[in-house]
Each structure stands twice: as C-alpha cells, then as structure tokens.
Simulated scan of single mutants.
Amino acid sequence: MFTNELKKQIEFARAETLNQVTVDKPNIKINTQHSLSEYLVGEIIDHYPEVLRESVVNVEPSNFHDSVQNFLADTSSLLLLMQFDSIPLFIPNKDVQSMDIGIDYLAPMVGVDKRGTPYFDYQTSKQIPMLSYTTKSVFRQAIEKSQTTKQLLHCNIVYENNVTHSLKNMVLSGHGVAWLPLNSIKKELAQGRLLLLSKEIEPVVGRIRLYRHQASESCLTTTNLWQSMNSFKLEPVRCKV
C-alpha cells in the first residue's frame, strides 16, 4: 500500500514538472489551413529544429477564412496561407507584414495498381470519378476559377472532403482522381504511387505566404522564427504522368 501511494506521488510530481516546463516555454501560435498544417508546418520545424527546443508550437488548423479571422483576433500569432491570384485576400490591419516563402501547385493526381498502371486514363476513360474539396474550400474555388476546369468535363464529383490527407488516401485506393498540393505528396510521387492525370492539364499555382502583426507583443522565439524565415524557400515539386 505504501508502495502504491509513493508511486502516485512520484507520478504527480513528474506531471507537475512537465506541466511547469510547458508553461514556462514561450508559445508560437500558427493559424493555417488544414492542408498546410499536415505537411508545411513540419517542414518548417525540420528546417528550424531549435524552435521545438525553445518553445511550444501551437498549430491551429482551420479553413482559409477562419484562419485569417483567428489571426486578426490574436495579434501575437502568425498566419500561414496558400493563396491564389484568382481569390484576392484583403487584410484591413495596416500593421500586418507578410513574406512569400514559396509556391505550390494543385494538380489532378491518379493512383496506380500493383502493376503500376494508373486506375484511370484521361484519354480513354469515359467517366472519371472526382474526389473533391467542398464548395466552401479556397482550393475548390481556385480550381473552378481556372481554365483547367473545362479540361475535366468527363469527371464527375463522387466524394467531397476538405482534408487533403483523406483525399490522397482515396486516390491511392483507386476511388478516383483528386487535385492535391504537390508538396503534400512528395513521398508518394517519389515512390511512383501517384501520377499526374494528364500533362495536358495545367496545374493551379498557389503562393505560400506568412503573415505577422508587425507591432505585436509576440514572444522572442516567434520574432526569431519570423526573421529566420527569410532563408526558407519551399521548393516546387516535379511530377510525371
């Protein structure tokens, strides 16, 4: 009985110590889209590993518009977005500062079977099932505003989901074709598990941009990360048909 009580006290003390360490660490809050939280935030941390040693990174994934509103409501936070020329963003705060950190592409991707053959052929398939973001998604809006939509007339939407990872898994399983950010599927492209549906279809270009409140009372670690991001560039991904 004494042993069990001692164990409880030790565990409690350990938990309190960990909690105190977390409280004492500065907090870097990043508002971002769901898709960017899945792959880009991790790449940034890989590039600057000291961020995790010096702070607690708090990622708040949401849709495009909610991410912007959350950022405007919290002047100590950062905002990470993929933006498109066809969907302009207006931020009323004059003190908001931004920087471009790279580009990404939305492109229609198809999975392959065990023999490496694409599940769907753009030239010969009469009807191709399309796995799509919902109509509220900025990705969906950017795709529909582009000229490439006219080139996909024989694709019917059969599934909608705003989570890029879910769409990718559906494509890999052969359920259809989906427009995916190429940087989110680097591994699958390198392994040949995902292919571009057709080289005739132009990808949709997205600019990756980081924002901060210039006159904010952000923690020193957030400021250091912002300044360091000038050396970070997201390299465009190449893919094959």
Rank of each mutant, 00 (worst) to 15 (best):
F64G: 02
I101Y: 06
V96P: 01
L18E: 14
Y211G: 02
V96W: 00
E60T: 11
M109I: 07
I44G: 03
E16L: 15
P203S: 04
N4G: 03
R53P: 00
Q83C: 11
V23D: 10
R53V: 08
D46L: 10
K7H: 08
I103L: 05
I30V: 15
G102K: 07
A73S: 12
S76D: 13
E16D: 10
T148A: 14
N161P: 00
G111H: 01
Q191D: 13
A13F: 10
N162G: 13
P92T: 04
F12M: 14
N27H: 11
M99T: 08
C155P: 01
F12G: 03
V158M: 03
A142P: 01
I10M: 09
R193I: 01
E16A: 13
L40K: 04
C239A: 15
N224R: 15
P49F: 07
L210M: 15
W226Q: 04
K94C: 02
F139T: 02
L225A: 10
S76Q: 13
L36K: 03
N230W: 11
G174N: 06
I91S: 03
V96A: 04
Q227W: 06
W226Y: 08
T148R: 13
L210H: 00
L80F: 09
S76F: 00
N27Y: 01
T124N: 05
Q127Y: 04
L210T: 00
I87C: 06
G42A: 13
Q83G: 10
Q97G: 00
R212E: 02
F120W: 01
E200T: 10
F71C: 03
E43D: 15
Q147N: 14
F71L: 03
E200G: 07
Q214M: 09
V23C: 08
V21L: 13
E11S: 13
S231W: 04
I208N: 02
S216R: 03
K7V: 12
L225N: 06
S62G: 06
D113T: 02
P203M: 05
E202R: 11
L195M: 13
F2V: 15
Q141W: 02
L225Q: 08
P181W: 02
Q147D: 14
L81S: 05
S62M: 07
M229I: 13
T221Y: 06
F120L: 01
E5S: 12
S184I: 03
L81D: 05
T22H: 12
S231E: 13
T222F: 06
Q123N: 09
Y105P: 00
N183K: 08
L81Q: 09
L80G: 09
S184W: 05
I128A: 05
T32A: 09
H213C: 07
K7T: 11
T22L: 14
F84I: 06
K168C: 09
Q147R: 12
E200S: 15
M229S: 12
Y122P: 02
F232K: 05
V138R: 00
H175Q: 14
L234R: 08
T164D: 14
I45F: 09
R193E: 15
V96S: 00
Y48V: 09
N230R: 15
A142S: 12
M82F: 08
R207H: 14
W226G: 04
V56D: 06
E202V: 11
L79D: 05
E188P: 09
D74L: 01
E38H: 12
L36R: 05
P203K: 02
P118G: 07
L131M: 07
